[in-house]
């Protein structure tokens, strides 16, 4: 039993992948185990959509002359909001998990294991997010059918699903940045709040950033927050292959940049813990 099982080189990649997959399943399992919370989230989603679509339906019904209302699509922004909230509510609180593990010393058992804590945590969060995306997605489709609203063209769904998944990845990375600040700050709440509010504002949670003044629109579109929310959601009201590809490119860019940022913070934080024995 004292024989050692070190991974042999050729197998290393596949073993790393299987550990990540296993963490993904674990995250999904945890979310399913907490199903009452999941149901609560779906109900919240429904009520949020009812309120927000009431707002935009009213604006479109009135179409006051000389306002931005002329730029709104015929069906209002209900579909757009449906996607932004779908992504927002699917995000797990990865920042809280990181803060908790880092500040409480809960990192130690993980550091005593041969796989990267950061990669495992990320994979686990992604698993949780996918279950939520699924449950909220089904809720959205049911609500769409019940509301009698005209659905977007079928290809919109083919664009929204991959962009939505990548949007969630961007969101998890953004929140992970806030959580990793726990190596240096006692509370990560301020970082998390700033990121969350920027998601609302620059990500276009309540309305597409195209309705903003030109400068703000340009800044927003290039930000990671638009990669998180705007690019997936705009497909619900302005479906285009070009928009899909542009969004995909921005998401790819920001996933690389944010992953690198997370990794750098993690390495610096880990070095601190290994040197000082804690935070």
């Amino acid at each position: 039993m004292t024989s050692t099982h070190l991974p042999s080189r050729p197998n290393e990649a596949s073993r790393a992948a299987s550990a990540l997959l296993s963490a993904f399943r674990l995250g999904a399992g945890q979310t399913l185990a907490g199903w009452p919370v999941l149901v609560g989230r779906c109900i919240f989603y429904v009520i949020l959509l009812i309120v927000l679509s009431a707002l935009w339906d009213k604006v479109v019904a009135e179409r006051l002359p000389g306002t931005l209302a002329g730029e709104l699509p015929a069906g209002g922004l209900a579909l757009y909001i449906g996607v932004t909230e779908w992504i927002t509510l699917a995000l797990p609180a990865v920042h809280l998990k990181l803060e908790d593990d880092i500040r409480s010393g809960g990192l130690e058992p993980h550091l005593l294991r041969p796989k990267s804590y950061l990669a495992q945590t990320f994979s686990q969060s992604l698993g949780a997010a996918m279950v939520r995306l699924g449950a909220l997605g089904v809720t959205a489709l049911v609500l769409l059918a019940v509301s009698g609203r005209e659905p977007p063209p079928w290809e919109a769904f083919a664009y929204i699903v991959p962009l939505g998944v990548l949007g969630v990845v961007v969101g998890i990375l953004l929140y992970a940045l806030a959580g990793l600040m726990a190596f240096w700050a006692r509370r990560t709440l301020p970082f998390q709040l700033v990121i969350q509010k920027l998601m609302f504002l620059l990500g276009g949670l309540y309305a597409p950033v195209t309705l903003y003044p030109p400068l703000l629109e340009a800044v927003a579109k290039a930000s990671p927050f638009a990669a998180h929310l705007y690019w997936p959601s705009i497909q619900a009201i302005v479906t285009s292959r070009e928009g899909f590809l542009t969004g995909l490119a921005w998401q790819g860019f920001w996933i690389v940049v944010l992953s690198y940022a997370c990794l750098s913070l993690w390495r610096a934080g880990l070095a601190k813990v290994l040197r000082e024995g804690g935070v």
Binding site: L55, K58, V59, E62, L64, G66, T67, L68, A69, F200, L201, Y206, A207, L211, Y212
Partner: peptide
């Protein structure tokens, strides 16, 4: 509040 400022700057009034 900022979101509502932006909203009413663009749409003037609702209902």
């Amino acid at each position: 509040l900022t979101l509502w400022v932006l909203f009413f700057a663009g749409f003037k009034s609702v209902g």
